[in-house]
Every structure is written in C-alpha cells, then in structure tokens.
Amino acid sequence: MTGLVVEIGEKAFPGASGGANPPLYKDFRLEIADRAFVALLGPSGLGKTTLLNMIAGVDKAFTGRLDFTNGRRPRISYVFQSPRLLPWRTVLQNVALPLPQGADSLKRARAAIADVGLAGSEDVYPERLSLGMQRRVALARGFAVEPELLLMDEPFVSLDEANTAKLHDLLNDLIAARPTTTLFVTHDSREAVRLADRIVVLEGPPARIARDITVPLTREARRIPGEIERVRDLVVGRLQSVAAVNG
C-alpha cells in the first residue's frame, strides 16, 4: 500500500531581497490512491517540480503534512527534470549505485540499461552521451530501483517519437509487474491521456486543482488517436462533462 495524501498549508520561496515571494501553494490538498497513475498538468513555473520535491522529501521548507497510507516512507524513485547523473561514474555505476549492494545489483543495472535501449553504453561516462541518452540513463536508474512510489518530472522530453513510444510501453510494463504508485508531471496532454488513469490539471498561482479527470480508457483504447483526442478535449477544458467522452 503506497497511497499518499499531500496537505500543504503554505509553500513559498524566499524572495531575492530577503522577503517572501507570494506562496506557490496555499491550503492545497492532493490525495493519490494506492497504485494510481496520476498525471500532473499545469503551466510552467506554477510549482509542479516543487510539489514533487516536497513529496520526495528533498524540500522540507513548507508547512503541511505528507501521509503515506502504509505509515512509512515508501521506496521512492524520482526521475528529475534534468538527468542528475554523476559525471565521474560510468552509466553502469550510475544505475547500480542506488541498488542495495550485492552480486545481483550489477545484473539488475545492466538489464535496466538494456531496457531503455542503451546496451553497449554501460562503460561510457555520462557527459559523452547525448541529452536524450542521459535522460534514458536517469530512467534506467529510476526503474532499476523497483520503486513503490515513482515520481517523474517531464521524463520524456527531448526524446524522439519511437523512443518515447518504447519507453511508454516500458513504463506500463514496469507498473504492471509490481505495485507502483506513479505521479507524472508533463506538459503534453496527449501523453498524459495515453499513460495516466487520472489527470490533475493545476492552475494558479497559488496552485489549485482546476480539473481532476479520471481517464476512462482501456489499454487498447489508448492506442486509438481518436479516443485520446476525445479525452484530451476534456483535459484542456474544451468539454465540461465526462458524458461527452463516454457518449
């Protein structure tokens, strides 16, 4: 069980001149069910990355609470908005380092690297890879951990369509294989519809939930562009009722 409830009384960053900036979040609440796949949409600069940072526990400077339904912190993978690899460690070391030490860890890391299509690059240093390849290493690192809670911040930008489609499938397989709760930030509403079973659209500031949409599509229907477009109309706010989608 890895559902969670985020309650933010207030989150504001200190301003440049010492005072406080207007708050990014005020009396904000988001509930995420166990094994849900929630996509988070919202304009740039609203605070989506900040929200993931607070959930991941790297940003503790806010009032509010974080409740995990099983009472302890789950095993978290966080695929950051930038790859955040260790430039002085090889691809293989980067993926293997978060894993518990053991004979098994290198094997798992190799498998994860092959899964993202980078077999053969294990011994390369990250700065010699293209940005898209670095992103895929970061994904391999996040997936290899076998997380209970998977946080992803625009993980598929700067990738080509074929790779993105492959990684979407990989993500689906990963989630199907193990109970995983996913929170996925993206600017691409089509991608959100294709992947998520719930889409939360934020507006602000301060950020509030403008629309909270359950995606009523089966895995097969998600491959049909027409179906995707119909739900997308709802997401971007062109249609107001679920009936229009289902009808």
């Binding site: 940072n53 991941a56 526990g57 790297v58 978290i76 993978s77 966080y78 950051f80 930038s82 955040r84 260790l86 002085w88 460690r89 070391q93 380092l97 978060p98 690192r141 951990v145």
Partner: peptide, 24 residues
C-alpha cells in the same frame, strides 16, 4: 545541490554519498 538531492532520494547513505558524490 542537485546531486545531493539525488543521493538523498535514492538512499545513498553517508558513506556512498561521500565516496561517489562529494569527494569527486
């Protein structure tokens, strides 16, 4: 700070963080 946060999220612990993140 980016790398320190990464190490914290992935549970590196003090020894791994020192050896693989800070000293390099």
């Amino acid at each position: 700070r980016d790398l320190a946060e990464m190490a914290a999220v992935y549970g590196f612990g003090p020894w791994k963080t020192l050896r693989h993140v800070i000293l390099p």
